[in-house]
Design a protein around this nucleic acid. Sequence first.
RNA 1: UCCUCCAUAGCUCAGUUGGUUAGAGCGGUUGACUGUUAAUCAAUAGGUCCCUGGUUCGAGUCCAGGUGGGGGAGCCA
Length: 505
Amino acid sequence: MKYIKQISAYENEVITLKGWVANKREGKGIVFLVLRDGSGFIQCILTEEELGAEKFEQARKLSLESSLSVTGKVIKAEKQMGGYEVQASEIEIYQIAEDYPIAKKEHGVDFLMDKRHLWLRSKRQWAIMRVRNKVIYYIHKFFQDRDFVNFDSPIFTGNAAEGSTTLFETDFYGKPAYLAQTGQLYAEAGAMAQGLVYTFGPTFRAEKSKTRRHLSEFWMIEPEMAFYDLDMDMDLIEDFIRTVVMDVLDACKTELELLGRDVSVFDMLKERFPRITYTEAVKYIRGEKEHNGKNAIQLQEEDLAGYQAEIKAKEAEIVEREAVVNNPNEKKGVKNFNRNKIDRLKAEIKELTEKTDNIPQWIESAKNFKEGEDFGGSDETVLTRLFAQPVMVYNWPTPIKAFYMKRVEDDENFVKGVDVLAPEGFGEIVGGSERETNLDFLLERIEHEGLNEEDFLWYNDLRKYGSVPHSGFGLGLERFICWICDLKHIREAIPFPRLYGRIYP
RNA sequence: UCCUCCAUAGCUCAGUUGGUUAGAGCGGUUGACUGUUAAUCAAUAGGUCCCUGGUUCGAGUCCAGGUGGGGGAGCCA
C-alpha cells in the first residue's frame, strides 16, 4: 500500500493510491480529481483516452467524498501542492458518495460544528489534527528525554481541588463524585514517589463560558518536580515551550504552511522570556510603565484605530465591487467572483466590528485595574502586546490563587505562582507554582477556601513524610495548539469539542 | 448569571418608510467546453422567512415572550 506522503519516492512509477475525492473539476474528456488518503492530497488526471469510455463515465459520476483507488503514473507537476500529480490508467470505485453537505463554499460555525465528524476531513482541520498529534508526541518526548515518569491521575475525584471552579457532578456507587478539574494534587504524590513526573489527560470544567478560549473538556499536561523551587520551575517552563514549539515547527512544515501560519514569529523563542512580578504587570496594564517606549493603553488605542481604518477600507471595496456586480455588461464569471469577495468582506467586517466594540471596554477595564484583582482576558492581551516572547508573571496576590501555592518569604500577601501568557493575544497557556510545604499554612488556606479538610488528609500526609520543596505547572494542550497554529477558536484544536451547550456529535 | 449581535432555499447571504407572485450566488440536476486550482456558457428544480402571541385592512419586515446560536464579562488552561 502506497501513501501520498511518500509520493516523491515513486516519480515516473505506476502506483495505486486509495482514498477519497476531496475536490473535482471537469472538462470535456478530462476529470481533475484531488484525492486525499489521510496522509496528504494529490491531484489525479482522469482522461477518457487513458481509462476508456466505460471507466471514464464512472469517473465523471464521482461526487465529493466518494471512495476509490487510483492506479497511475506519478508525474512531476511544479504547480501542484506537493509537486506531483497522478496520470490515472485505472480506477476502482468503492462507493459513490451521497450529496456531501460540506461544500467548497464557506460555512458558518454552527453548521460546521454539527458536521464536525465530516468537517475533520477538510484540509484545514486535517492539518490541525496532524499538528495536534505532533504536539502530543513532542511533549511526551520532552519529558521522557529528561527522565520524567508519565503518571496518570484519576478522572473521578471525591472533592473539588480548587474551590472556585464549577465541576461536573456524577454518581460514583451512590456517592457524589466529580470529574477531575486538575490532576495536580495527585501528581504531587507521584513526585514524592518518582521524583519527576508528568500527567497527561483530560480535565473537566463546568463553567458556562462562551468564549474562544474555553472548553468544558480539555487535555492538560501537568509536570511535578521534587526539589524544584519557583525559579527552577520557570526555567523548565521556558525550556519546555521553546523545545516543543521548535520540534513541532520542524515536523509540521507542510501543515503550518497550509494553515497559513507565519512561523517567523517564533524566531523570538530563542531569546529569554521576560519574567515580571504581578505588581510590575499591573503597572504595565494600567499604562503607568512603558516597555521599549511602548505603552499598553496607547497600543490598544492604536489597534482600535487600525481596525476602524480596516473596516472603512473594506466598506469602500464593497462599494467598488457592488458597482461591478450591478454592471449589466459585465461577464457572469466576473460578477460571481466579485459577489464572493463581497460576502467575504462582509464577514471580515463583522469580525472587525466585534473587536472594535470590545476594545473600548478593554481599555476602560485596563485603566481602572485594581491591584489585587486577577487579570481578565483583555488584560492579558494588553500585557503580551508589549513583548515578543511569552511573558511569565510571578508572585501573585494570595487571595486570587489556589490554596496549595507557597507563600513568598516574609510576605504572606503573595504566593509563588506563575502564569505564562502567550503572545498575539492567545492568553494564558501555562499556570504553575511552587507548592506550599508548611502544613499549618495549608490547613489555614483549606479552611479559608471553604474546602473540606477530610478530603485533603492524604494530601497533607505528603507534608508529614519527608516533605521537600517542589513545584510544577499545567499546560492547556488546546490553547497551546491554538497558539502554534494561529487558530481563532479553541474548538478547532480538538477532534470533538465539548463546550457549553454542545455535546453533539 | 450579565452585556451585545444574530436566526430567510442544502450552504453563504440580500430583502427599501409594513404592500400584491420572497431574491442572488454557490451547491444539485441536464446539456455545451482537453489542463482546471472557490472565476466558462445556458437551462432547470429547490421556501413552515426559528416558535408563540400581539399591533395592523395587510407582517419576512414593527412589538412582547420563548428557543437556538455568535462574540464578550465573570471564571479559567
